[in-house]
Structure formats: structure tokens, C-alpha cells
């Protein structure tokens, strides 16, 4: 088998990792994807390729992830159960492995009604929990869900998502535990703006004995303007953006709002870093890769570490 996940290696070495999200491409030209990825190169350890994010159609995460592999940049392939049944999901997982994708984030996905094809048929053949189990079984037992053997099992570092801020709040850490049992090696959370609530969530996660069993990577959003903060507050499902944050940006003169957004993000990075059990940050600059680099720089996260040689990853830690 070829290379292993670098991200997994860094996390297992105890490094504080930085991941980021690639703006999804609407171009048939791979250069568009590469241009964005090049901005992030060296400032992050791995890059998420989203799967029809917000239920809007874009280039497939599998293709985008492969384009990154071609350039020697490590991708994290997101895959939702919204658009594919169990056959298509497993086919894409195996294909991704063959194309050099090592990191996955498996999720339910925003509903089609949130996107640009609200009249589409929802699939949801299996749920995100079951997809975790399926991916883990492909890796650990080398079988499809049907039980049929794979010729060569993939080596995946399997991620999942959790939203610490959505009801029922007391159930969220338990659901995270269930995801770990189903096969999640790491978790990327919903965007954190309310640090106190997040710290409370992490305390419950620690009480369940999950610290050390799963790497938790909170997402930090970088608002570029008061308008984008307002948009996130109103339009993005499952996102809780405090009014005070929008107000802070609105008070800032327009020309300096981006700078203020970076400042807000840096404050959030510094705050979540202090919380026990936090293994890294996932930076999301919406259509704004430069913002990610600025935050990584200003938060003292650069340069990114190189992996010590001979660290073996893959499989369960």
C-alpha cells in the first residue's frame, strides 16, 4: 500500500494541527482549484474538499481531492449521504483510496432545500453514522457492507462532524461517542463562536473518556465583512453566530472589516487552544483563502511542522 495520512501522523505525534477548507470550484479547469490550494500550501496541514456544500452543486469532492494529491497537497475528502446510496458511497470511497486520498470526513449534509436544487430527490439511503461504520469496515476488515471481500483494503483516517451548539445539547457529546464507536478517528466541529458553550461541550466529552480516543478539531470561521457574518447568522443551517459579533463588524469601517474578521478569528483560535482535548483548528475563510493564511500567521501557527520520518499512521490509534 502507498502513503499514509500525514494528518494522522501529526495528530498522533501530538502536534496541534491546522486544516482549512477549499472554496469549492465551479470550473472545468483544474487551475482554478490549484490556484486556491497554492495560497494555502505551507500554511495548513491538510485541506478539506467539500461535497456539494450547502447543497449547492460544485465540482465533486473526489475530483478536487485528487487534484490536490496530484500537487502533493494532502486533502480531506468530505462525503455526504445526501446525494449517494450505499453503492455509490462505497464505490467513491474505494476510488478515492486508489487516487491517493487518505483522510475522510463523513456526514449527513445540509438538506437539498438549503441549496440551489431544492426540488431534488434526497437519497439518505444510509445515515452518517452507518457510513462511518462502513468506511471503517472497508479499512479494518477489508469488506464491503455486503460482506464481499475487497482485493486490497484502503487505509483511511476517518473523520466525522459534530455540532456542539445544536439541540439537544446534552445528547451531542453522547452522539460524538457513538461516532467514535462507529469508526471516527477525528472530529471537525461546527464553527465555534461561543467559546463558553464549546468548553462546556468539551468538558462533557472529556467526562465520557473520549479525550485521547478521538482528535477534536473545532472550526473557526473568518468573517470577511459584516455582510458575510450577517449571512452566516441568517442563512447557514446549524450555525449560531452571536449578534455581538455581527455588531462588532458593523461598527468597523468597511475598509477595515476584513482585518477585524482576522482579529476575531485569531482570538477564537487562541481561546479554543486552551481547552483540554482540542487537537487543532479547522479554519474556514468563505471564498477567502488569504484570510486563512493571515489567521494562521497572526495566531503563531506558522511554520507548519514536518512529520518525523517513519511515523506509521492509518488504522486505529
Amino acid at each position: 500500500m502507498t502513503s499514509q495520512s500525514r494528518l494522522a501522523g501529526l495528530l498522533r505525534e501530538g502536534r496541534f494541527v491546522v486544516t482549512a477548507e477549499l472554496s469549492s470550484s465551479d470550473s472545468a479547469d483544474p487551475e482554478a482549484t490549484w490556484r486556491q490550494a497554492e495560497v494555502l500550501r505551507g500554511s495548513v496541514d491538510a485541506i478539506n474538499c467539500t461535497d456539494n456544500t450547502g447543497a449547492h452543486v460544485h465540482m465533486s469532492s473526489l475530483a478536487a481531492a485528487h487534484l490536490l494529491v496530484e500537487k502533493g497537497i494532502e486533502p480531506i475528502m468530505q462525503l455526504t449521504v445526501r446525494d449517494r446510496n450505499r453503492l455509490a458511497l462505497q464505490a467513491d470511497l474505494l476510488g478515492a483510496a486508489a487516487l491517493g486520498v487518505r483522510n475522510l470526513v463523513l456526514m449527513s449534509g445540509d438538506d437539498v432545500t438549503a441549496g440551489d436544487h431544492p426540488e431534488a430527490r434526497r437519497i439518505y439511503d444510509i445515515d452518517s453514522m452507518q457510513l462511518l461504520e462502513v468506511a471503517a469496515a472497508m479499512r479494518d476488515r477489508g469488506t464491503y457492507l455486503s460482506g464481499r471481500k475487497l482485493e486490497q483494503a484502503p487505509t483511511f483516517f476517518i473523520g466525522a462532524v459534530e455540532n456542539p451548539f445544536a439541540p439537544p445539547l446534552e445528547f451531542r457529546p453522547l452522539r460524538l461517542q457513538k461516532k467514535v464507536r462507529a469508526g471516527a478517528d477525528f472530529i471537525q466541529t461546527q464553527l465555534v463562536f461561543d467559546v463558553r458553550l464549546f468548553a462546556h461541550f468539551m468538558a462533557m466529552v472529556a467526562d465520557l473518556g473520549l479525550v485521547g480516543k478521538v482528535f477534536i478539531i473545532p472550526s473557526i470561521g473568518i468573517p470577511r465583512s459584516a455582510r458575510s457574518a450577517h449571512f452566516m447568522r441568517e442563512k447557514v443551517p446549524g450555525l449560531h453566530v452571536p449578534e455581538s459579533l455581527v455588531a462588532r463588524l458593523e461598527r468597523t469601517p468597511q475598509a477595515r472589516q476584513a482585518e477585524e474578521g482576522v482579529k476575531i478569528a485569531v482570538e477564537l483560535v487562541n481561546a479554543v487552544r486552551e481547552i483540554p482535548g482540542v487537537s487543532g483548528v479547522h479554519l474556514i475563510g468563505i471564498k477567502w483563502e488569504e484570510g486563512v493564511v493571515q489567521v494562521a500567521e497572526a495566531a503563531g501557527l506558522l511554520p507548519r511542522p514536518t512529520l518525523s520520518p517513519l511515523v506509521s499512521a492509518g488504522g486505529r490509534g
Partner: peptide, 12 residues
Amino acid sequence: PKNLRNGPCGGV
């Protein structure tokens, strides 16, 4: 609407 059998989605 997402036929989830193992807990709520993140969109609640």
C-alpha cells in the same frame, strides 16, 4: 426528512 436512525443532524 434525512431518515436518520442514529441521532440528529447538525442542522437542528
